[in-house]
Design a protein around this nucleic acid. Structure first.
Lengths: 343, 343
DNA sequence: TAATTATATGCAATCGTTTGCGTAATCCGA
DNA sequence: TCGGATTACGCAAACGATTGCATATAATTA
């Protein structure tokens, strides 16, 4: 059993009767140290399994080299899309020799600010972040940029900052999905989206609108609702289904909402997809659990994560110019299952 | 816009014409510095938003003080139970002033070893870990312990190490669930579990067996199967349902498997729960998505995470004796929904 | 007024590495 | 045998903070 204290270069130096500088050079294979000494030192180090103290290394290099820690801020953790993204970030970061410091904001602005400070103190080399819902001031992000810490946004983008970002192709994703509904015979397609002042909400709505236009259908405002969770969906849907001119399809902004619609529509006695078609957005766990299984737009969270990490590392390593905001769009994919008719 | 280089005590000292030592003492509110100087220095620091370099602080204190970084190793990330646990760890750690370095092993032994080394190098103060499936050697864990890095296991426990751990009460959870099935009229209850050489598998099986005994039912070996995923469940279930003496209930080791059973049983034309009752284990997202909703044992991942973090921090801070292995069991809770009859 | 004590500050070592520079020792050719 | 190049190493100053100890000044006491 080793002693608790880690072995240092000083120990090696003392033991082998050389200076610390020599040990340092020998371990980094400097040719200015004679072959025999170098090997002796390396062997000794190996046998006593010495390894360098990163803290000291970092301190020495703090002027030039950034650390290899990437900060990741998520609004919540128990969430299919976010954990996919984290997975993607981890994959990309670890293969490129970086590690992750992960924190969740709980959708709280105050906590988000705290986290940013803590990460700055802990010398992360950059931060990948999705904003908390109630964040409306951006000084904490600006401070980070001023301190030279690159920022990459995903999912929820900071509108006030021209920062690097990666988002999914909400517009095309929705357009394809709605086109699919139309092409399988649906005429009155309801749209359950988020508030239009979120970029994501607007893009999806535009995709919906344009798909209708392209197919020569009119947009009926009464079919467009703000609704992005199951409870609301279960409340809003029944009255719509009881109207004279009921929808024959629903496009929902996420799988959860789609599931809500599905469950309530079935309860009302409609057949899915024969009476009503339903399409979601995410393609998470839920999509294959409901009955029938959900047709949905795959959001490819892990790809989003990978791209975000790739951008950040590029920024850190200088492959990407620090002043340029890299913006990437991850393509979505329509996964057709049982809640829509087949073409 | 600030310069990129962070301000240091030296800068403050130069600017105010005092020594670095004085700045250090003033900022830590030492009474040995005169009130005026102290305030002047503090004000200057505040105005130029100086903050200490943790790297340097850590180096200075490395002998006595551990870092405040907790390493977390997960076999995978996109998984309800694991992300709940991560959520719990984050919550507990962040409120107690620690941050998380998260890595995933991808169920690979080699990667797990790498991660342990990297975390040791990065001076985490301790590690919370669930073993990869193919880990059968434990030297990397032993090295960590030898180096004085406390370890806390969750979910998948290292059998060869007498380390601290937190697990859910698989035995009672299963026992209660099976009792519920019996008390709602089921007589022939199938058990879909994992391999018996995993502790978790054995405990759940024992709970099943003892629930049967306590209610005077016999254990029928033909109803006990090894099956812990949806695909297998969909393959194994139909033949069972076609036998003369078909089961009238299923207990599955996780929700995913239960969903597989549910979907196939419905397809075969049985009514759930009237013909067949089904109970799962996890209570993840899936449980409320299927139709009918799944009766299941809630695993309380976030509680597991909190307990794990609590133990680790106790170990690090010395509240818990370093040589003692703290073992905690998180109670489960039966959530009765639509796949079983009501009592 | 001289001696004593408090008060406020600086010096310098330390944490573990890295690295520019200086310098013995060795080697080479003439 | 001597001057110059080469080789192989050590010294010491960083990196940014902390802290035991010494000390200069000021305040107190006899």
């Amino acid at each position: 059993m080793d002693d608790k204290r880690q072995m240092t270069m000083k120990d090696i130096a003392r033991e082998l009767g050389v200076s610390v500088a020599t040990v340092s050079r020998a371990l980094s294979d400097s040719p200015s140290i004679s072959r025999e000494r170098r090997q002796a030192i390396q062997q000794y180090a190996r046998e006593h399994n010495y390894f360098p103290n990163v803290i000291a290394e970092q301190l020495r290099h703090s002027r030039r080299n950034p650390s290899r820690a990437i900060g990741v801020i998520m609004p919540e953790m128990v969430h299919y899309y976010f954990s996919s993204i984290l997975d993607g970030i981890e994959t990309e970061a670890s293969t490129r020799g970086y590690h992750l410091i992960v924190a969740k904001s709980n959708e709280s602005y105050a906590r988000e600010v705290q986290i940013c400070e803590a990460m700055l103190k802990n010398k992360v080399c950059g931060i990948i972040v999705s904003q908390a819902k109630d964040t409306e001031q951006y000084d904490h992000f600006k401070h980070l940029e001023a301190a030279g810490v690159p920022l990459v946004f995903y999912d929820r983008i900071c509108p006030a900052l021209n920062a690097s970002r990666v988002v999914v192709d909400d517009y095309m994703g929705t357009m394809n999905a709605v086109s699919h509904l139309i092409e399988t015979g649906c005429k009155r397609i309801a749209f359950f989206g988020t508030s239009m002042n979120m970029i994501i909400g607007k893009n999806r709505f535009n995709g919906y609108r344009d798909a209708l236009y392209e197919h020569g259908l009119e947009l009926d405002e009464s079919l467009v609702r703000i609704c992005d969770n199951r409870a609301d969906a279960e409340r809003i849907t029944p009255p719509m289904m009881r109207t004279e001119n009921r929808p024959d399809a629903f496009f929902a902004v996420n799988d959860e909402t789609a599931i809500g619609i599905l469950s309530v529509v079935k309860r009302l006695g409609f057949a899915v997809p024969d009476d009503v078609s339903i399409c979601g957005f995410t393609n998470g766990f839920r999509a294959t659990v409901c009955d029938p299984m959900l047709t949905t737009v795959e959001q490819r969270g892990s790809q989003v994560g990978k791209e975000a990490a790739d951008i950040l590392i590029g920024l850190v390593e200088g492959t990407l110019p620090a002043d340029h905001a890299e913006k990437r769009i991850v393509k979505t994919r329509l996964v057709i299952r049982g809640t829509t008719r087949h073409p």
